[in-house]
Amino acid sequence: MTAPETDETILVADDDEEIREVIRFKLQSEASVVTAADGHECWEYLQSHREDPPSVLVLDVMMPRMNGRQVLERVRDDEAFDAMAVVVLTSIGRSDQVVEALETGATDYMNKPFSPDELLARIRRARG
């Protein structure tokens, strides 16, 4: 296992544990990976790390307590997270989710099911 070369953090918010763990495994060589099991937990983490926010947020759309769209709206209304890239995970065939996410300020999106390699490439691009 390769240690991350940067001190960046990537936050992964998805209510499916398997998805969180696979993404964490795939991204752990890129950055420190933190996970949240729902939108509320994700927002609480972001609030407690306003001074040093993650560089990338991987955000599922359909989540309990607070969905991805609500999180994204709050993120984009808050200047503390201006530099944070947001990659939204949408359901395949739901172009409305994609449009809504991009209109709300998502940096990029990926349809589920997805290739973890492609997600990694998109995250690298989103970080610039």
């Binding site: 499916d16 398997e18 696979v22 589920k112 099911p113 997805f114 290739s115 390699d117």
Partner: peptide
């Protein structure tokens, strides 16, 4: 995992 992973994996 087969339900949502595609590609080489």
């Amino acid at each position: 995992q087969l339900r949502w992973v595609r590609g080489t994996e």
